[in-house]
Every structure is written in structure tokens, then in C-alpha cells.
Simulated assay, not measured.
Amino acid sequence: MTTLAQPRPGTAPGLMNMVLIGAVVGLLASAAYVALQLLSQGHGAYNGDSRGIFWGLPIVTYDFFLLSSTGLAMLASVWTVFRVDAYRAIARRALWLAVAALAGGVAALFLELGYPLRAVFMIPFSGSTSAPLFWKVWGVIFYGIGLLWMIAAWLRPNQADPPRAAAVLTLVAAVFITFIAGGVYGWMSMRPFWFGGEISLAFLVESLLSAVTFTIIFTHMARGFDVNRFTAAERELFAGRLGGLFAILMVAHAFFVVSRLVSGLYANADGMQVWHYLWNRPLFHLELWVGLGLPIVLTVLPSLRRNLQLQLLAAVIAIVALFAARYDFVIGGQLVPLFKGSWVHGLLEYRPSATEWAVLALAVFLANTVNALGERVLRLDGES
């Protein structure tokens, strides 16, 4: 009687080839549709509102992917900078995922800006040091330099351990970008829904939570969604320290969401009525009770957290809920117009256009294309 051979630890090239093909096809299709709409309609292809909603779904996409990228770089730094050996198993893959997420985020931003190349060249040299976006762009520049340095010196085959200077530069730039990204919203006193010194800390927690969930999801994908292909180091890390970090970050994120929700429902300041609007939406309750509640249950209970399939389920739910929370935050802060008149009654309304959804799809497909290419040509496994 013969027995079926169990898969050995390693990647699943067949699945990754399918992901690459699907991502490239999706990227070409979404890019063609977005280009056609922008060439024929210009910025009118987006459902913005000149009365106050200037940042729509493309900016939500950009923020989400950028902060996911910085979080992934910070997660990789646990090994590259602090040399915590247990995290060596995921450091390379996390760093390349940071590159993939950055590519998707920057693409979404460029498609939202009317003149992206003009902005790229003019903002860094504008001298507008009082503007958070000035410092954010410089942070992204140094972040990109650090990532390119790390790729050249570490991710290519037959390379030694990462250079400490490049790793530190990448980490410092990632933390700086996350702090400034929170400040872009949290320092706007004229937008009570956004305003608060805790926003940068909340962004830090959310970026790290995105990093953990993406690392879990794409490691499973690289292994063909077969836990038998996981290396011993990956299995130990996922069932131990990384799973514990996942639980801590989920609880911290839930604390920020619930505390801001309670204060928003209690407050009577103009602008905070958005919380009552969100509270009366069924989708918001789905985000709360399923998007937050279920991953917390699956990660906080040790017996469930050590089950890698359930951990993957929690990661998928959490990353969708994180994107929904970012949408609520960015759009919700603009629903109350800054300058009211007889032409504005109640809250503004916004629904993303088909072009804006296509920009999101383009960012997702581009990030997956970059990641799948890295799985093919770079050394992303933890072994040296």
C-alpha cells in the first residue's frame, strides 16, 4: 500500500505563476480603463465634491498602501535592525512586500493628481516647511533610497546580511512617514472628526497591523496555502511571537476605534455628527462586530491563534476591515463642509465612481505583480 508524499517546505511556483499572470492581466485591463476615463473626462471621472470632498477613494487607497508599506518595513526591521532572530524567517518577504505596497500606493496617488510629475519635482523644493506634505514627500524620498539600497545589498541572490546603515535609514524613514501621515489629518483643527494628537499613534498601530496581516496572507500564498510547506521557523513564529503581536495590535486598533466612536457619539461639536451617521449604517456595524470582533476572538485565544488556517482567516478579515476603517476615516472627515451656506443641507454625500474603483483595482494588481515577480527572482525566504 502506498501513501501520498507530504509536501516539503518551500514555495509553490505553480500558484505564484498563476498569481503573476492574473495580476498582469488585471493590471493591464484596469490601467487601460483608468487611462481611457481620465483622457476623456479628466478629473471629472472622480466623484469628488467642490464643496468639501477633495480626497476620494484614490487617496484612501494611497494612504492604505503607503502605511502598509511603512509597517512592513518596520516589521522587517525587527530582524534587519534589532536582530531578533525569530523574525528572520519573514524579514525578506516583509521587506519586498513593503516595496510592492509602496508601488501600489504611489500609482494610486499619481492617478489622483492632475500633474503628478510637477508635484514630484516642485513639492520637495517648494520650501514650504510648515506644510506636513512637504516633509512627507522628503520622507518618502529617503524611504525609497533605503528600500533600493536594501534590495541591492540583501534581497538579490548570494547576498550577505543586510547592511545596518541601510536598514536603519529605512526604519527611520518608515516611522517618520507614519508620524507625518497621521499629522496630515490629526493636526487639522478645522476638521474635528480628524483632529487629535493620538492620530499618529493610531496610524502606527494600523500600519503594523497591516504589515502583520499582509505577511501572514502572502506567506501562505507563497506556500500554496498549504501549512505543510511552511518552514519550521515560519511555523514557530506564526504560532508564537507573530501571532501574539497580531492579537496585541488587533486589541490596540479596536481600542482606538471604539474610544473615538464613543467620544464622537458623546460630543456635540460641529463635525462630530459624522459618528452618528456612521453608527446608523449597517456596514459600519459589520466592520465593528465582524471586522474587529472576529479577528480579536481568533487571535486573542491561544488555542485558536496557533491554528494557522484560522490565523489566515483572521488576517483576511482584518485587512478588509482596516481598509474599510481607513475609508470611513478619510471620507468621514470631509462630510461636514468647512464653509456652510444655504446650498449645503446636512452632510455631503460621496460614492466612488467606477474609475475610482478601477484605480483601487490597479493598485492591488500592481502590488501583486511586483510581489509575484519578487517571489520568482529574489531570495525572499528566511534562510541565509
Results as ranks from 00 to 15, higher is better:
T2G: 09
Q6F: 10
P9N: 12
G10P: 00
T11R: 08
P13W: 04
G14C: 05
L15E: 03
M16L: 15
V25H: 02
S30Q: 07
A32W: 05
S40F: 11
Q41S: 13
G44M: 13
A45T: 09
A45P: 07
L57C: 03
L57T: 05
P58D: 00
V60A: 01
T61M: 01
S68M: 11
L72W: 03
M74H: 06
F82H: 09
R83W: 01
A91P: 05
V99N: 04
A101P: 02
A103M: 12
P116N: 08
R118P: 00
R118E: 13
P124E: 10
S126P: 06
G127K: 10
S128P: 03
S128H: 15
P132S: 08
K136N: 12
W138F: 10
G139A: 04
I151T: 12
W154I: 05
A160H: 14
A160S: 15
A166N: 04
A174K: 02
V175A: 14
I177G: 00
G182Q: 01
Y185M: 07
G186F: 00
W187Y: 13
M188W: 08
F193S: 02
W194Y: 13
F195Q: 08
G197S: 08
E198R: 13
A202S: 15
L204Q: 07
V205N: 05
S210A: 10
T213W: 01
T215I: 01
H220R: 10
M221C: 14
A222S: 15
R229K: 10
F230C: 08
R235L: 13
G240H: 06
R241F: 07
L242S: 00
G244R: 08
H253D: 12
A254H: 02
F256I: 08
V258W: 14
R260E: 11
S263H: 08
G264T: 04
G264N: 03
A267W: 03
A269F: 12
D270F: 13
W275A: 08
W279F: 15
L288A: 09
L292W: 07
V297D: 09
V300K: 03
L308H: 12
L308M: 14
Q311A: 14
L312M: 11
L313W: 12
A314K: 05
A315H: 08
L322P: 04
A324M: 11
G333N: 04
Q334Y: 07
V336K: 06
F339L: 11
K340L: 14
G341P: 02
W343P: 01
R351G: 12
A354T: 11
E356V: 03
V364K: 05
A367G: 12
G374K: 00
E375M: 10
L378S: 09
L378Q: 10
G382Q: 01
G382M: 05
E383D: 11
